[in-house]
Simulated assay, not measured.
Amino acid sequence: MTPLQFNLNLDDLKDSVMDSSLDHVVKSAIVLILNEYMEKERDEYLQADPYERSNQRRDYRNGYYEREYTISLGKIKLKVPRTRNGEFTTDVFERYARYDQVLILSMLEMVINGVSTRKVTHIIEQLCGESVSKSLVSSLTQKLDPIVNEWSKRPLNTHYYPYLFVDAMYIKVREHHRVVSKAVYIATAISDQNKREIFGLMVDHVESFDSWSRFLQQLKERGLQSPKLITSDAHAGLQKAIQREFIGTTWQRCYAHFKRNIMDKLPKKGNDEFKSMAKRIFNAVKVEDMRSFKEELLQQFEEEPKYKAALAVLEDGFEDTMQYMNEPVSMRRYVRSTNYLERLNQEVRRRERVIRIFPNTQSAFRLIGGILMHFQDKVLAHKESLIK
Results as ranks from 00 to 15, higher is better:
residue 194 N to Y: 07
residue 180 V to N: 07
residue 233 D to A: 04
residue 225 Q to H: 02
residue 217 Q to Y: 10
residue 168 A to V: 08
residue 248 G to E: 02
residue 201 L to S: 06
residue 186 I to L: 04
residue 208 S to I: 10
residue 219 L to D: 03
residue 232 S to G: 08
residue 200 G to T: 00
residue 248 G to C: 08
residue 214 R to N: 08
residue 223 G to D: 01
residue 246 F to T: 02
residue 233 D to W: 05
residue 203 V to H: 09
residue 206 V to K: 14
residue 230 I to V: 10
residue 224 L to R: 08
residue 217 Q to W: 15
residue 185 Y to E: 01
residue 197 E to Y: 10
residue 195 K to E: 02
residue 241 A to Y: 12
residue 228 K to S: 14
residue 183 A to M: 01
residue 194 N to V: 04
residue 203 V to G: 03
residue 242 I to T: 06
residue 240 K to V: 09
residue 247 I to N: 07
residue 174 R to S: 01
residue 212 W to Q: 15
residue 244 R to D: 12
residue 215 F to W: 02
residue 191 S to F: 09
residue 203 V to W: 07
residue 222 R to M: 03
residue 171 I to P: 00
residue 239 Q to D: 12
residue 235 H to G: 06
residue 211 S to H: 09
residue 218 Q to T: 15
residue 196 R to H: 06
residue 234 A to N: 04
residue 184 V to N: 00
residue 229 L to D: 05
residue 191 S to T: 05
residue 245 E to P: 11
residue 195 K to P: 05
residue 205 H to F: 10
residue 246 F to P: 04
residue 193 Q to H: 12
residue 246 F to Q: 00
residue 192 D to K: 14
residue 175 E to G: 09
residue 244 R to E: 12
residue 188 T to R: 11
residue 170 Y to H: 01
residue 170 Y to W: 03
residue 243 Q to R: 14
residue 211 S to V: 14
residue 181 S to Y: 12
residue 198 I to P: 07
residue 235 H to F: 10
residue 241 A to P: 09
residue 185 Y to P: 06
residue 178 R to S: 13
residue 204 D to P: 07
residue 234 A to G: 06
residue 197 E to C: 09
residue 203 V to N: 00
residue 172 K to T: 14
residue 231 T to S: 00
residue 213 S to I: 08
residue 179 V to F: 11
residue 248 G to Y: 06
residue 218 Q to M: 15
residue 213 S to M: 10
residue 186 I to M: 05
residue 172 K to R: 09
residue 222 R to P: 05
residue 174 R to Y: 10
residue 215 F to Y: 02
residue 217 Q to F: 13
residue 199 F to T: 03
residue 213 S to G: 10
residue 227 P to W: 07
residue 195 K to F: 06
residue 231 T to W: 02
residue 178 R to P: 04
residue 188 T to G: 11
residue 212 W to R: 05
residue 231 T to G: 01
residue 215 F to A: 00
residue 219 L to H: 07
residue 233 D to Y: 00
residue 233 D to F: 09
residue 199 F to N: 08
residue 232 S to K: 05
residue 232 S to H: 04
residue 217 Q to S: 15
residue 174 R to G: 08
residue 240 K to M: 12
residue 170 Y to E: 08
residue 233 D to K: 02
residue 248 G to T: 11
residue 213 S to P: 03
residue 178 R to Q: 09
residue 210 D to L: 15
residue 227 P to L: 11
residue 244 R to T: 13
residue 245 E to I: 07
residue 225 Q to L: 15
residue 170 Y to S: 04
residue 241 A to M: 05
residue 199 F to V: 14
residue 210 D to N: 13
residue 187 A to H: 01
residue 189 A to V: 00
residue 187 A to E: 00
residue 236 A to L: 14
residue 247 I to T: 14
residue 206 V to Y: 13
residue 218 Q to F: 13
residue 215 F to I: 11
residue 232 S to M: 11
residue 171 I to F: 08
residue 211 S to L: 07
residue 211 S to F: 12
